[in-house]
Nucleic acid binder design. Structure first.
Lengths: 231, 231
DNA sequence: TTATATCGTCATAAAACTGTGATCTTGCCG
DNA sequence: CGGCAAGATCACAGTTTTATGACGATATAA
């Protein structure tokens, strides 16, 4: 299970702790220190889950929560809040504001990982679903097979990961640099044009002949899986 | 009789008790502590039977039961629930939700083993079947023999276990490290490349000459038994 | 003990995949 | 319509991954 997680936390040691453990678990982590950048980071790339420290120096946790919940595109991102023991009362308010779960500091890391797993499973089934479907396209993670209209589609590893990522986030547009981050890996030093080539190869394999193209090019924007594909 | 059994139980002493006795009986045991990992473990390798403690800390037993019954691939895995004497009412609900049998804690181990045997025989004859079949391939667990198109195939112990594991989970792709875990054992300190060599040997024995290869290589992914083999 | 089988590792060959630059095509602006 | 910028496509060389054969070590059977 691999997810994109946004950590909003101003204490650096805890930032490190979280980043280290979440990355070890295979998640992708971005950290925002003061809640100010938060909305920008979210707009930049929609995270699958937000870990939110309740006591921030600048903007308050409750405020972040409200902002996230206010926008339609981010409304259903699950939020786990981290609170100090003394903030018991706050916690209740937090849940009322829309957090999905909470942990009391100091928290146990395995406990945190378990909660994350559970929440992702519950709210973001695509993240763990064995099969991703769209129209006549079917991607199976367990067998690593892709079929289009009951015909086998043989993809290379990179093409498979690329398609998986796009199908998991249907409709969302990803810039070339975002795709390099998620599909190739944070430290990939690869030219952005390479993404074009792989999208091209993926398309060729997917659309043998005259089928409708499920991948949408957004000029200057990037690529997306066409959410209207198959309807 | 050898089956893959998933134990969902949060009390460690009972975990140990179950693991020890079931493994002594020849079964392969995996333990999930809190019910959270359960669905993932099931996806990882379909168990032949689930032993489910009714009182779990996180997700409730009834919930696990429902989840298992909700998915088509897992719907017919038999479930035995473990309840405390006082949970009479729960028991009824459990059976209503789809458990196949129950035991009251504290239970006698021979009794448990007997129930397991009986249930597996009754509900899942395939799981304990002496034979695994696919196309012209036939693997007999009792005699440890493998035949291909009525021809004897002489496999080494490791090759046999490898083939058994892959055939039991047809279609699913296993990474080299997963295969080392399940086929070689959790603590095997063996190079991942060794898996290649054994797959190669297995293939050579299986495909004498020009037969179709039942094992599928998935680049960067691992190996799988080709679920289309024989059709 | 000797003979036989199995196992893990290494070296090398073969195959598949990847990134890049050149070139062609398309869309968009005035 | 012309010109430019962005995207699509192609061929190719380098790299990564897998397949295979050989060997010594260890275990098993006779």
């Amino acid at each position: 299970m691999t997810a994109s997680i946004l950590v909003i936390e101003d204490e650096e040691p805890i930032q490190m702790l979280l980043r280290y453990n979440l990355e070890a678990e295979g998640h992708r982590v971005r950290v925002s220190a003061d809640g100010e950048d938060t909305m920008m980071l979210i707009g930049d790339e929609r995270p699958d889950l937000i870990l939110l420290d309740w006591m921030l120096s600048g903007i308050s946790g409750i405020e972040v929560c409200r902002l996230v919940r206010a926008r339609a595109e981010t409304r259903d991102i699950p939020i786990i809040m981290l609170t100090a023991r003394s903030e018991e009362a706050e916690r209740v308010r937090g849940l009322a504001t829309g957090a999905d779960d909470y942990l009391i500091k100091p928290f146990s890391v395995p406990e945190l990982l378990a909660r994350i797993k559970s929440i992702l499973r519950r709210l973001n089934p695509d993240a763990v679903a064995e099969e991703l479907k769209a129209g006549d396209l079917l991607l199976n993670r367990a067998t690593k097979r892709v079929m289009r209209a009951n015909r086998d589609v043989n993809l290379s590893p990179t093409e498979f990961r690329l398609l998986e990522h796009l199908m998991r986030n249907q409709g969302r547009v990803y810039s070339r640099s975002q795709l390099l981050d998620t599909v190739w890996g944070r430290d990939a030093e690869v030219d952005e044009r390479t993404v074009d080539v792989h999208v091209g190869r993926l398309r060729k394999m997917l659309n043998r002949g005259k089928d409708i193209d499920p991948i949408r090019t957004v000029r200057t924007g990037g690529y997306a899986f066409n959410e209207r594909f198959g309807s």
